[in-house]
Nucleic acid binder design. Structure first.
Lengths: 177, 177
DNA sequence: TACCGCATGTAAACGGTTACATGATTAC
DNA sequence: GTAATCATGTAACCGTTTACATGCGGTA
C-alpha cells in the first residue's frame, strides 16, 4: 500500500507516448512543473539504467554531428505491462492530490475506461476522506488544527463536486455511443 | 527553497504544546492521520536523538513500575527559536496542500499573527498557481493532462474562496478589538 | 498459545537531491 | 569571455521506511 509517484513509472508513462532520450523526458517533465518539480538528472539517468537492466526499455544510440550522442529509449511490452499494473492497482488511501493527478494524466493517455476507473476510485476515496475529516472536527482540537480540518473539508467538497460533474458527462457520452 | 514537512520540525511543534515521550508523539501524529501517514519509529527516535544532541530538547527519564521507562522530552528556548524560524520562513512555491496545512496547524498554536501570515502567504501562492494552471490549459495537451489541469483549477478556486472567506473574518475580528 | 499494547532502539535498503565532471556549440 | 543549451553520467549525502531486537503485562 505504498503509493507515491515514482520516477520509473513516470518515465514509462512518457515513453508510452513516444521513444525519447533522458534529456527529452526532462523537458517533458518541466512541462508538468505546475504539478511536480521535475526530478533531477541525478535520479533520471540512474532510473533509465535500471529500467534498461530490467528489460522495461531498450536503447538506441543516435550519434549527431556537432552535438553529443543521444540515447533514445523505447518502452518494451514488459514495460507496458508494469506500467499498466501500477495504474490498475488501487491507489493507497489518503494518497495525495498530486499522486492522483499524475495517475489521471497517465490513465488519460491509455483509454477512457482507465480514466473513468481512476475518477471513480478517487470519488470513493474523497468521500471517505470527507467523512473522516468531519469526524475529526467533532473532537476537541486546537485552533490551528480546526482551521486545517475546515480547509480540508472545503477542498474535499470541491473535489467531489468536480468529480460528479465529470463522471456525469462521461457516462452521458457513453450512452450516446 | 527546499520545503517539505520534516519530522524534527513536527516534533518541535508538538513539544511546544507539552513535554512528551517519543511514543506519545507517535500517538499525536496518528491523530493527524487524515493529513499525513504518521512517521515510523525508525525515523522518530533517531530524530529525537538528533534534537537532543543539538540542544533543541532536553530529556528526563521517568521509570514506571510494570512498564518500560519513558523518556520525556521538553523543548528548549533554542528549539522554540528554530521552530519559529522555520514557520516564519516563506513556504517554497508550489508547496503542497499537506505542507501548508501542517504549517497552519503549527502557526495556529503560536499566535493569530502567525496564522494570518500563513494564510496570506498561501493566498499569494494559490493565485499564482491558478494563473500558471490557466496558462498551461491554453497549450495543446493530452486528454489526461487537460482533465488534470481542470481539476487543479477547480481545487485552486475552492482554496481561494475559502482563504478569502477566513481572511475576511479574521480582519473583522481585529477591527472589533 | 498467541497476539496486542507499552516503550525503546538499530541496521539495511530505498528513493531522491545536490554537486560535481566532461565537452562541444551558440549567443550576448 | 562568459553564459547557456545540449547530453550524459557519478558520488556524497539526506530523510525515510521496513524489518528486526528486546522484554514485560494483559487479553482472546
Amino acid at each position: 500500500m505504498a503509493n507515491t509517484i515514482n520516477i520509473r513509472q513516470l518515465i514509462l508513462g512518457f515513453l508510452t507516448q513516444q521513444p525519447m532520450s533522458g534529456y527529452d523526458i526532462k523537458r517533458f517533465l518541466k512541462g508538468l512543473s505546475w504539478l511536480i518539480d521535475s526530478p533531477s538528472f541525478g535520479s533520471l539517468y540512474p532510473a533509465l539504467h535500471t529500467l534498461l537492466k530490467d528489460g522495461h526499455v531498450t536503447v538506441e544510440i543516435v550519434p549527431q554531428q556537432d552535438k553529443p550522442r543521444r540515447k533514445i529509449y523505447t518502452i518494451t511490452d514488459k514495460g507496458s505491462e508494469t506500467l499498466q499494473d501500477w495504474i490498475d492497482q488501487p491507489a493507497a488511501s489518503g494518497v495525495s492530490l498530486k499522486a492522483f493527478l499524475m495517475r489521471l494524466i497517465l490513465a488519460g493517455n491509455l483509454s477512457e475506461a482507465h480514466l473513468t476507473a481512476q475518477l471513480k476510485q478517487r470519488r470513493t476515496q474523497v468521500s471517505a476522506h470527507l467523512q473522516r475529516t468531519a469526524d475529526a472536527l467533532q473532537k476537541d482540537v486546537g485552533p490551528g488544527e480546526r482551521l486545517a480540518l475546515d480547509y480540508g473539508l472545503a477542498v474535499a467538497n470541491a473535489e467531489l463536486a468536480w468529480l460528479d460533474n465529470v463522471l456525469g458527462r462521461l457516462s452521458k457520452d457513453t450512452e450516446d455511443t
